[in-house]
Design a binder for these strands. Structure first.
Lengths: 190, 190
DNA sequence: GTGATTTCTTAAACTACCTTAAGTATTTTC
DNA sequence: GAAAATACTTAAGGTAGTTTAAGAAATCAC
Protein backbone atom coordinates (compact mmCIF):
# COMPACT_ATOMS: atom_id res chain seq x y z
CA UNK A 1 0.00 0.00 0.00
CA UNK A 2 3.05 2.25 0.06
CA UNK A 3 2.24 3.99 -3.26
CA UNK A 4 -1.07 5.28 -1.97
CA UNK A 5 0.32 6.33 1.41
CA UNK A 6 3.20 8.05 -0.31
CA UNK A 7 0.75 9.94 -2.49
CA UNK A 8 -1.24 11.01 0.54
CA UNK A 9 1.89 12.17 2.38
CA UNK A 10 3.09 14.14 -0.60
CA UNK A 11 -0.27 15.90 -0.86
CA UNK A 12 -1.23 16.67 2.75
CA UNK A 13 0.30 16.60 6.23
CA UNK A 14 -0.81 13.41 7.96
CA UNK A 15 0.40 11.44 10.98
CA UNK A 16 1.71 7.87 10.76
CA UNK A 17 -1.17 6.68 12.94
CA UNK A 18 -3.70 8.17 10.59
CA UNK A 19 -1.86 6.67 7.63
CA UNK A 20 -2.36 3.28 9.21
CA UNK A 21 -6.06 3.90 9.64
CA UNK A 22 -6.30 4.89 5.99
CA UNK A 23 -4.28 1.89 4.95
CA UNK A 24 -6.63 -0.48 6.77
CA UNK A 25 -9.65 0.82 4.85
CA UNK A 26 -8.29 0.05 1.41
CA UNK A 27 -8.21 -3.29 -0.36
CA UNK A 28 -5.44 -4.45 -2.62
CA UNK A 29 -6.76 -5.79 -5.91
CA UNK A 30 -5.18 -7.21 -9.05
CA UNK A 31 -6.77 -6.92 -12.46
CA UNK A 32 -5.60 -8.60 -15.62
CA UNK A 33 -5.33 -6.77 -18.89
CA UNK A 34 -8.80 -6.22 -20.42
CA UNK A 35 -10.57 -7.06 -17.17
CA UNK A 36 -13.34 -4.67 -16.14
CA UNK A 37 -13.42 -2.94 -12.76
CA UNK A 38 -16.77 -1.28 -13.37
CA UNK A 39 -19.59 -1.71 -15.83
CA UNK A 40 -21.96 0.98 -17.03
CA UNK A 41 -25.40 0.80 -15.33
CA UNK A 42 -24.03 -0.96 -12.26
CA UNK A 43 -23.37 0.85 -9.01
CA UNK A 44 -19.84 2.11 -8.61
CA UNK A 45 -19.15 0.48 -5.29
CA UNK A 46 -15.49 1.40 -5.17
CA UNK A 47 -12.98 4.05 -6.15
CA UNK A 48 -9.59 2.94 -7.41
CA UNK A 49 -6.06 4.19 -6.89
CA UNK A 50 -3.66 2.78 -9.47
CA UNK A 51 -0.37 1.63 -7.96
CA UNK A 52 0.87 -0.29 -10.99
CA UNK A 53 -0.57 -0.63 -14.47
CA UNK A 54 -3.07 1.42 -16.39
CA UNK A 55 -6.85 1.84 -16.44
CA UNK A 56 -9.21 3.54 -18.84
CA UNK A 57 -12.59 5.05 -18.08
CA UNK A 58 -15.01 5.18 -20.98
CA UNK A 59 -18.64 5.83 -21.82
CA UNK A 60 -20.71 4.11 -24.50
CA UNK A 61 -23.06 6.24 -26.62
CA UNK A 62 -26.45 5.31 -28.10
CA UNK A 63 -24.79 3.89 -31.18
CA UNK A 64 -22.63 1.60 -29.08
CA UNK A 65 -19.49 3.62 -29.74
CA UNK A 66 -16.98 3.86 -26.88
CA UNK A 67 -15.58 7.23 -25.79
CA UNK A 68 -12.56 7.37 -23.51
CA UNK A 69 -13.05 9.86 -20.73
CA UNK A 70 -9.76 9.41 -18.90
CA UNK A 71 -6.75 7.20 -18.31
CA UNK A 72 -5.11 6.37 -15.00
CA UNK A 73 -1.53 5.21 -14.64
CA UNK A 74 0.52 5.06 -11.44
CA UNK A 75 -0.71 7.44 -8.71
CA UNK A 76 -3.94 8.35 -10.48
CA UNK A 77 -7.47 7.75 -9.28
CA UNK A 78 -10.31 6.21 -11.25
CA UNK A 79 -13.99 5.81 -10.56
CA UNK A 80 -17.43 7.03 -11.46
CA UNK A 81 -17.64 9.68 -8.76
CA UNK A 82 -21.26 10.58 -9.33
CA UNK A 83 -22.31 6.97 -9.05
CA UNK A 84 -20.08 6.36 -6.04
CA UNK A 85 -21.09 9.46 -4.07
CA UNK A 86 -24.77 9.62 -5.03
CA UNK A 87 -25.38 5.86 -5.12
CA UNK A 88 -26.72 6.13 -8.66
CA UNK A 89 -25.98 3.73 -11.50
CA UNK A 90 -22.76 4.42 -13.32
CA UNK A 91 -22.46 6.08 -16.71
CA UNK A 92 -18.87 4.94 -17.19
CA UNK A 93 -17.02 1.67 -17.60
CA UNK A 94 -13.55 1.10 -16.21
CA UNK A 95 -11.18 -1.42 -17.73
CA UNK A 96 -7.56 -2.42 -17.17
CA UNK A 97 -5.34 -1.74 -20.19
CA UNK A 98 -2.45 -3.62 -18.54
CA UNK A 99 -2.16 -6.09 -15.71
CA UNK A 100 -2.71 -3.69 -12.84
CA UNK A 101 -2.36 -3.38 -9.09
CA UNK A 102 -4.91 -1.04 -7.52
CA UNK A 103 -5.97 -0.05 -4.03
CA UNK A 104 -9.70 0.37 -3.79
CA UNK A 105 -12.13 1.59 -1.19
CA UNK A 106 -15.86 1.09 -0.74
CA UNK A 107 -18.39 3.69 0.27
CA UNK A 108 -18.66 2.58 3.88
CA UNK A 109 -14.93 2.85 4.47
CA UNK A 110 -14.78 6.10 2.52
CA UNK A 111 -17.40 7.65 4.80
CA UNK A 112 -15.52 6.36 7.80
CA UNK A 113 -12.28 8.04 6.71
CA UNK A 114 -14.13 11.24 5.91
CA UNK A 115 -15.59 11.18 9.42
CA UNK A 116 -12.41 10.34 11.27
CA UNK A 117 -9.41 11.59 9.34
CA UNK A 118 -9.41 15.33 8.62
CA UNK A 119 -6.29 14.99 6.47
CA UNK A 120 -8.15 12.53 4.26
CA UNK A 121 -10.87 15.11 3.72
CA UNK A 122 -8.23 17.65 2.73
CA UNK A 123 -6.69 15.10 0.40
CA UNK A 124 -9.95 14.36 -1.37
CA UNK A 125 -10.79 18.05 -1.57
CA UNK A 126 -7.50 18.66 -3.36
CA UNK A 127 -8.11 15.71 -5.68
CA UNK A 128 -11.61 16.86 -6.57
CA UNK A 129 -10.48 20.44 -7.09
CA UNK A 130 -7.66 19.44 -9.39
CA UNK A 131 -10.08 17.31 -11.34
CA UNK A 132 -12.47 20.26 -11.58
CA UNK A 133 -9.68 22.47 -12.93
CA UNK A 134 -8.49 19.82 -15.38
CA UNK A 135 -12.01 19.25 -16.70
CA UNK A 136 -12.54 22.98 -17.14
CA UNK A 137 -9.33 23.14 -19.18
CA UNK A 138 -10.39 20.19 -21.27
CA UNK A 139 -13.78 21.72 -22.07
CA UNK A 140 -12.13 24.94 -23.19
CA UNK A 141 -9.58 23.02 -25.25
CA UNK A 142 -12.25 20.97 -26.95
CA UNK A 143 -14.02 24.18 -27.91
CA UNK A 144 -10.87 25.99 -29.00
CA UNK A 145 -8.59 23.48 -30.66
CA UNK A 146 -8.60 21.34 -33.79
CA UNK A 147 -7.93 17.61 -33.56
CA UNK A 148 -4.30 18.13 -34.53
CA UNK A 149 -3.82 20.74 -31.82
CA UNK A 150 -5.53 18.56 -29.23
CA UNK A 151 -3.23 15.68 -30.13
CA UNK A 152 -0.11 17.83 -29.79
CA UNK A 153 -1.37 19.08 -26.47
CA UNK A 154 -1.99 15.52 -25.31
CA UNK A 155 1.55 14.51 -26.27
CA UNK A 156 3.00 17.43 -24.36
CA UNK A 157 0.86 16.98 -21.28
CA UNK A 158 1.12 13.18 -21.05
CA UNK A 159 4.32 12.23 -22.92
CA UNK A 160 4.62 8.88 -21.19
CA UNK A 161 0.97 7.93 -21.70
CA UNK A 162 1.25 8.00 -25.48
CA UNK A 163 3.86 5.24 -25.27
CA UNK A 164 1.71 2.93 -23.18
CA UNK A 165 -1.78 3.37 -24.53
CA UNK A 166 -2.98 1.98 -27.87
CA UNK A 167 -3.54 4.76 -30.37
CA UNK A 168 -7.16 3.93 -30.89
CA UNK A 169 -7.88 4.81 -27.28
CA UNK A 170 -6.02 8.09 -27.58
CA UNK A 171 -8.05 8.88 -30.70
CA UNK A 172 -11.23 8.18 -28.77
CA UNK A 173 -10.06 10.42 -25.92
CA UNK A 174 -9.43 13.21 -28.42
CA UNK A 175 -12.82 12.71 -30.04
CA UNK A 176 -11.59 11.49 -33.41
CA UNK A 177 -11.41 8.17 -35.27
CA UNK A 178 -8.26 6.02 -35.14
CA UNK A 179 -7.96 6.35 -38.91
CA UNK A 180 -7.86 10.12 -38.72
CA UNK A 181 -5.30 10.10 -35.91
CA UNK A 182 -3.15 7.77 -37.95
CA UNK A 183 -3.32 10.22 -40.84
CA UNK A 184 -2.45 13.16 -38.60
CA UNK A 185 0.58 11.28 -37.33
CA UNK A 186 1.83 10.39 -40.80
CA UNK A 187 1.39 14.03 -41.87
CA UNK A 188 3.35 15.15 -38.80
CA UNK A 189 6.41 13.13 -39.83
CA UNK A 190 6.77 15.02 -43.12
CA UNK B 1 -29.26 39.45 -0.28
CA UNK B 2 -32.33 37.23 0.17
CA UNK B 3 -31.76 35.28 -3.07
CA UNK B 4 -28.36 34.06 -1.93
CA UNK B 5 -29.49 33.25 1.61
CA UNK B 6 -32.50 31.43 0.23
CA UNK B 7 -30.23 29.37 -1.99
CA UNK B 8 -28.01 28.52 0.96
CA UNK B 9 -30.98 27.50 3.09
CA UNK B 10 -32.41 25.33 0.34
CA UNK B 11 -29.08 23.54 -0.03
CA UNK B 12 -27.86 23.02 3.53
CA UNK B 13 -29.11 23.34 7.10
CA UNK B 14 -27.88 26.64 8.53
CA UNK B 15 -28.88 28.82 11.48
CA UNK B 16 -30.17 32.37 11.11
CA UNK B 17 -27.16 33.68 12.98
CA UNK B 18 -24.81 32.03 10.56
CA UNK B 19 -26.86 33.33 7.65
CA UNK B 20 -26.25 36.83 8.95
CA UNK B 21 -22.52 36.21 9.15
CA UNK B 22 -22.54 34.97 5.56
CA UNK B 23 -24.63 37.90 4.45
CA UNK B 24 -22.15 40.38 5.93
CA UNK B 25 -19.29 38.94 3.89
CA UNK B 26 -20.91 39.48 0.50
CA UNK B 27 -21.12 42.69 -1.47
CA UNK B 28 -24.07 43.71 -3.61
CA UNK B 29 -22.98 44.79 -7.08
CA UNK B 30 -24.80 45.99 -10.17
CA UNK B 31 -23.46 45.46 -13.66
CA UNK B 32 -24.87 46.93 -16.85
CA UNK B 33 -25.40 44.86 -19.95
CA UNK B 34 -22.06 44.19 -21.71
CA UNK B 35 -20.04 45.25 -18.67
CA UNK B 36 -17.19 42.93 -17.68
CA UNK B 37 -16.86 41.43 -14.20
CA UNK B 38 -13.56 39.71 -14.93
CA UNK B 39 -10.94 39.97 -17.63
CA UNK B 40 -8.66 37.18 -18.82
CA UNK B 41 -5.12 37.46 -17.39
CA UNK B 42 -6.24 39.45 -14.35
CA UNK B 43 -6.66 37.87 -10.95
CA UNK B 44 -10.15 36.65 -10.18
CA UNK B 45 -10.58 38.54 -6.92
CA UNK B 46 -14.22 37.63 -6.48
CA UNK B 47 -16.80 34.92 -7.08
CA UNK B 48 -20.27 35.97 -8.16
CA UNK B 49 -23.75 34.78 -7.28
CA UNK B 50 -26.35 36.02 -9.77
CA UNK B 51 -29.52 37.28 -8.10
CA UNK B 52 -30.98 38.99 -11.17
CA UNK B 53 -29.80 39.06 -14.76
CA UNK B 54 -27.45 36.88 -16.71
CA UNK B 55 -23.68 36.44 -17.02
CA UNK B 56 -21.52 34.56 -19.46
CA UNK B 57 -18.08 33.09 -18.86
CA UNK B 58 -15.89 32.75 -21.92
CA UNK B 59 -12.34 32.03 -22.99
CA UNK B 60 -10.48 33.55 -25.94
CA UNK B 61 -8.32 31.27 -28.08
CA UNK B 62 -5.05 32.06 -29.88
CA UNK B 63 -6.95 33.25 -32.94
CA UNK B 64 -8.93 35.71 -30.85
CA UNK B 65 -12.12 33.64 -31.09
CA UNK B 66 -14.39 33.64 -28.04
CA UNK B 67 -15.70 30.35 -26.60
CA UNK B 68 -18.54 30.39 -24.09
CA UNK B 69 -17.82 28.10 -21.19
CA UNK B 70 -20.96 28.71 -19.14
CA UNK B 71 -23.92 30.96 -18.48
CA UNK B 72 -25.31 32.04 -15.13
CA UNK B 73 -28.85 33.24 -14.57
CA UNK B 74 -30.66 33.63 -11.26
CA UNK B 75 -29.22 31.43 -8.47
CA UNK B 76 -26.13 30.38 -10.40
CA UNK B 77 -22.53 31.05 -9.52
CA UNK B 78 -19.85 32.43 -11.80
CA UNK B 79 -16.14 32.87 -11.41
CA UNK B 80 -12.78 31.57 -12.50
CA UNK B 81 -12.35 29.11 -9.64
CA UNK B 82 -8.79 28.16 -10.42
CA UNK B 83 -7.71 31.77 -10.47
CA UNK B 84 -9.71 32.60 -7.34
CA UNK B 85 -8.56 29.65 -5.24
CA UNK B 86 -4.96 29.41 -6.46
CA UNK B 87 -4.37 33.14 -6.87
CA UNK B 88 -3.29 32.62 -10.48
CA UNK B 89 -4.24 34.83 -13.40
CA UNK B 90 -7.59 34.02 -14.93
CA UNK B 91 -8.13 32.13 -18.18
CA UNK B 92 -11.75 33.24 -18.48
CA UNK B 93 -13.63 36.48 -18.96
CA UNK B 94 -16.99 37.17 -17.36
CA UNK B 95 -19.47 39.59 -18.87
CA UNK B 96 -23.03 40.64 -18.09
CA UNK B 97 -25.48 39.76 -20.87
CA UNK B 98 -28.24 41.74 -19.15
CA UNK B 99 -28.30 44.43 -16.48
CA UNK B 100 -27.54 42.24 -13.49
CA UNK B 101 -27.61 42.19 -9.73
CA UNK B 102 -24.95 39.96 -8.19
CA UNK B 103 -23.65 39.21 -4.73
CA UNK B 104 -19.91 38.79 -4.73
CA UNK B 105 -17.28 37.73 -2.25
CA UNK B 106 -13.53 38.26 -2.13
CA UNK B 107 -10.94 35.69 -1.11
CA UNK B 108 -10.40 37.07 2.38
CA UNK B 109 -14.08 36.86 3.27
CA UNK B 110 -14.37 33.49 1.57
CA UNK B 111 -11.58 32.09 3.74
CA UNK B 112 -13.24 33.60 6.78
CA UNK B 113 -16.55 31.84 6.05
CA UNK B 114 -14.75 28.59 5.35
CA UNK B 115 -13.03 28.87 8.72
CA UNK B 116 -16.06 29.86 10.75
CA UNK B 117 -19.21 28.50 9.13
CA UNK B 118 -19.25 24.71 8.67
CA UNK B 119 -22.52 24.91 6.75
CA UNK B 120 -20.85 27.22 4.25
CA UNK B 121 -18.16 24.59 3.69
CA UNK B 122 -20.88 22.00 3.07
CA UNK B 123 -22.59 24.39 0.70
CA UNK B 124 -19.45 24.99 -1.36
CA UNK B 125 -18.62 21.30 -1.37
CA UNK B 126 -22.04 20.56 -2.88
CA UNK B 127 -21.62 23.35 -5.43
CA UNK B 128 -18.19 22.12 -6.49
CA UNK B 129 -19.35 18.54 -6.68
CA UNK B 130 -22.32 19.36 -8.82
CA UNK B 131 -20.06 21.35 -11.08
CA UNK B 132 -17.69 18.38 -11.30
CA UNK B 133 -20.56 16.08 -12.28
CA UNK B 134 -21.93 18.55 -14.82
CA UNK B 135 -18.53 19.01 -16.43
CA UNK B 136 -18.04 15.26 -16.65
CA UNK B 137 -21.39 14.96 -18.41
CA UNK B 138 -20.51 17.76 -20.78
CA UNK B 139 -17.19 16.18 -21.73
CA UNK B 140 -18.91 12.89 -22.49
CA UNK B 141 -21.62 14.66 -24.47
CA UNK B 142 -19.09 16.58 -26.52
CA UNK B 143 -17.39 13.30 -27.39
CA UNK B 144 -20.62 11.42 -28.08
CA UNK B 145 -23.06 13.80 -29.73
CA UNK B 146 -23.32 15.72 -32.99
CA UNK B 147 -23.96 19.46 -32.96
CA UNK B 148 -27.67 18.89 -33.60
CA UNK B 149 -27.92 16.49 -30.67
CA UNK B 150 -26.00 18.85 -28.41
CA UNK B 151 -28.38 21.66 -29.33
CA UNK B 152 -31.46 19.57 -28.57
CA UNK B 153 -29.93 18.56 -25.28
CA UNK B 154 -29.21 22.19 -24.44
CA UNK B 155 -32.82 23.15 -25.19
CA UNK B 156 -34.10 20.37 -22.96
CA UNK B 157 -31.73 21.04 -20.11
CA UNK B 158 -31.97 24.85 -20.15
CA UNK B 159 -35.32 25.68 -21.82
CA UNK B 160 -35.48 29.17 -20.33
CA UNK B 161 -31.87 30.03 -21.20
CA UNK B 162 -32.46 29.69 -24.93
CA UNK B 163 -35.04 32.49 -24.73
CA UNK B 164 -32.72 34.93 -22.98
CA UNK B 165 -29.35 34.36 -24.55
CA UNK B 166 -28.42 35.50 -28.06
CA UNK B 167 -28.07 32.54 -30.40
CA UNK B 168 -24.49 33.31 -31.28
CA UNK B 169 -23.49 32.69 -27.66
CA UNK B 170 -25.37 29.40 -27.59
CA UNK B 171 -23.58 28.39 -30.79
CA UNK B 172 -20.26 29.20 -29.16
CA UNK B 173 -21.20 27.18 -26.07
CA UNK B 174 -22.04 24.22 -28.30
CA UNK B 175 -18.77 24.57 -30.21
CA UNK B 176 -20.26 25.53 -33.58
CA UNK B 177 -20.60 28.70 -35.66
CA UNK B 178 -23.73 30.88 -35.41
CA UNK B 179 -24.34 30.30 -39.13
CA UNK B 180 -24.44 26.55 -38.65
CA UNK B 181 -26.75 26.79 -35.65
CA UNK B 182 -29.06 28.99 -37.68
CA UNK B 183 -29.12 26.33 -40.39
CA UNK B 184 -29.83 23.57 -37.86
CA UNK B 185 -32.75 25.58 -36.50
CA UNK B 186 -34.27 26.20 -39.91
CA UNK B 187 -33.93 22.51 -40.76
CA UNK B 188 -35.65 21.64 -37.45
CA UNK B 189 -38.77 23.61 -38.37
CA UNK B 190 -39.42 21.49 -41.45
C1' DG C 1 -38.73 57.61 -34.48
C1' DT C 2 -34.76 57.35 -37.44
C1' DG C 3 -30.00 55.95 -38.33
C1' DA C 4 -26.55 52.95 -36.68
C1' DT C 5 -25.23 48.80 -34.81
C1' DT C 6 -25.82 44.15 -33.77
C1' DT C 7 -27.93 39.72 -34.60
C1' DC C 8 -29.91 36.30 -37.53
C1' DT C 9 -30.54 33.99 -42.00
C1' DT C 10 -29.38 32.00 -46.43
C1' DA C 11 -26.48 29.96 -49.69
C1' DA C 12 -22.27 28.58 -52.23
C1' DA C 13 -17.64 27.03 -51.91
C1' DC C 14 -14.52 24.85 -48.91
C1' DT C 15 -12.20 21.89 -45.20
C1' DA C 16 -11.78 18.85 -41.32
C1' DC C 17 -13.00 14.77 -40.17
C1' DC C 18 -15.71 10.24 -40.99
C1' DT C 19 -16.78 5.85 -43.35
C1' DT C 20 -15.64 1.99 -45.67
C1' DA C 21 -12.54 -1.18 -47.16
C1' DA C 22 -8.40 -3.54 -47.94
C1' DG C 23 -3.65 -4.39 -46.69
C1' DT C 24 0.20 -4.58 -43.30
C1' DA C 25 2.19 -4.87 -38.84
C1' DT C 26 1.94 -6.32 -34.20
C1' DT C 27 0.45 -8.93 -30.36
C1' DT C 28 -1.85 -12.82 -28.34
C1' DT C 29 -2.86 -17.57 -27.84
C1' DC C 30 -1.98 -22.33 -27.34
C1' DG D 1 6.40 -20.72 -33.48
C1' DA D 2 2.22 -20.80 -36.37
C1' DA D 3 -2.53 -19.33 -36.45
C1' DA D 4 -5.66 -16.03 -34.91
C1' DA D 5 -6.86 -11.90 -33.24
C1' DT D 6 -5.96 -7.13 -32.62
C1' DA D 7 -3.92 -2.71 -33.91
C1' DC D 8 -2.22 0.47 -37.30
C1' DT D 9 -1.95 2.43 -42.06
C1' DT D 10 -3.50 4.11 -46.47
C1' DA D 11 -6.67 5.84 -49.65
C1' DA D 12 -11.15 7.01 -51.96
C1' DG D 13 -15.54 8.93 -51.39
C1' DG D 14 -18.81 11.12 -48.25
C1' DT D 15 -20.72 14.32 -44.61
C1' DA D 16 -20.79 17.65 -40.83
C1' DG D 17 -19.51 21.81 -40.00
C1' DT D 18 -16.77 26.30 -41.58
C1' DT D 19 -15.93 30.38 -44.27
C1' DT D 20 -17.26 34.16 -46.72
C1' DA D 21 -20.44 37.29 -48.14
C1' DA D 22 -24.65 39.60 -48.61
C1' DG D 23 -29.30 40.75 -47.15
C1' DA D 24 -33.09 40.83 -43.59
C1' DA D 25 -34.52 41.45 -38.98
C1' DA D 26 -34.05 43.08 -34.57
C1' DT D 27 -32.08 46.10 -31.11
C1' DC D 28 -29.71 50.24 -29.58
C1' DA D 29 -28.62 55.15 -29.25
C1' DC D 30 -29.82 59.72 -29.35
Amino acid sequence: MKELLQHLKSTVAISDQHLEVVSAKFTEQHFSKKEHLLYFDHYAKRLYFTAKGCLRTYAIDFNGVEHNVSFAVENWWSGDLKSFLNKESAICNIQALEDSLVFSINRENWDCLVREIPAFVSYTRILFRNKLFAQQDRIIQNLSFTAKERYHHFLQEYPNLSQRIPQKYIASYLGITPEFLSMLRSRMKK
